[in-house]
Design a protein around this nucleic acid. Structure first.
Lengths: 198, 198
DNA sequence: CTCCAATCGCAACTCGTGTTGCTTTAGGCT
DNA sequence: AGCCTAAAGCAACACGAGTTGCGATTGGAG
């Protein structure tokens, strides 16, 4: 068994990954083709098919990269403001002309392909866990009841943004983001996410 | 200009629509093919291509049918219980082995195709407007502040279910549905959805 | 330095989706 | 009842995604 992590294989891998992201940003998920990625990366089409299998494989691979990227976590001292900041970050991320289509492509791919769905699931599990930190701090400050499920607060806060974007296909303004965050904050304060509630 | 709403065209149309729904229920969106629909409906493949154009066209057409179907709207006398009932209905709908895949196919199609997205947008606009009735009643009873945006309460209530299903790909239990409804109810009572709030 | 196995490049092929030009059928109208 | 045209059927074709067998290249190990 031979490993060549620094050799030609690695170069090919990087070229294809970069080409995938570039194609995704330019044409979106619908315009992503194995052949175009092969041409842009300078790697032969057969090679891409053999190592990634399909368009969904390319996306699942790119997702693993995205998962490793760090995330700025707000710490304003106010629970509501922290939540607002998180949801605003999600909203503005999708509004961004380059990051937006790439993120949207991940969601689109996961809806159709099981592998991409698993990758995205892991991605969001990590994000929820990370973002739940702002809830833990709020509990310590006494802003929300003890036993509050942090991950579920985050889910509730960001869900309306995704709902508008990918389900109802309505526009999403910053005002919508703030309102969604405020709704989750109000519910958390009311103890809806506390396991101690009946 | 000749119209033949009761003739062969109408029969073909119905046959194709029914075949589309049956295929969707059996194989889901990924397994939906124009050819299979043509075979199952007994209509020639060329005809389907000419009138519906593609798989997305078939789904957009089926969606228009779905929009016309009436919806049972709860009226329990309690705002929170009404909301719970609505969200539970969404959750159990997707859990249903026959209605679930069809509904999921609509969402999947809309993510990829502009026509389907517009159809789904209209579908949800109608649903939100209809469901906002429970909020109007709650306002009249004094359970939530005047000026509360009913459609947005509904969006907030159901969004976490869709978020889990189509974004994070987490399982959705009835408990999750109830909690999402309760969160929206608590936020509405707190005045988050009232235009009179700053 | 040389070998060698993994990986990549290449060209030809298969297969299924969607298209086109033409013919046939059927239903509304007089 | 019979015509007339919109709509459906049909077969042949075009096109592109994905596959396969084989030869070429590369980079690490001895």
């Amino acid at each position: 068994m031979e490993q060549r992590p620094g050799g030609r294989s690695a170069r090919v891998r990087d070229a294809v990954r970069q080409a995938t992201l570039a194609e995704l940003a330019e044409r979106g998920y619908g315009g992503l083709t194995v052949e175009n990625v092969a041409i842009r990366s300078g790697v032969h089409k057969t090679t891409v098919y053999r190592r990634w299998g399909s368009v969904e494989g390319l996306i699942a691979d790119a997702l693993e990269l995205a998962r490793e990227e760090p995330w700025p976590m707000p710490d304003t001292g106010s629970f509501q403001e922290d939540l607002r900041e998180i949801v605003r970050l999600v909203q503005s991320g999708f509004a961004d002309p380059v990051a937006g289509p790439v993120s949207a492509a991940f969601v689109t791919a996961a809806v159709q392909n099981g592998d991409a769905a698993r990758s995205l699931h892991d991605f969001f599990t990590a994000r929820h866990e990370q973002a739940a930190e702002v809830v833990r701090r709020a509990v310590e400050r006494g802003e929300v009841p003890a036993g509050t499920d942090g991950a579920d607060v985050i889910r509730t806060a960001v869900a309306p943004v995704y709902y508008r974007l990918f389900v109802t296909h309505e526009p999403v303004t910053e005002h919508d983001a703030v309102r969604a965050a405020d709704a989750a904050a109000a519910a958390a304060r009311a103890g809806v996410f506390s396991a101690l509630q009946p």
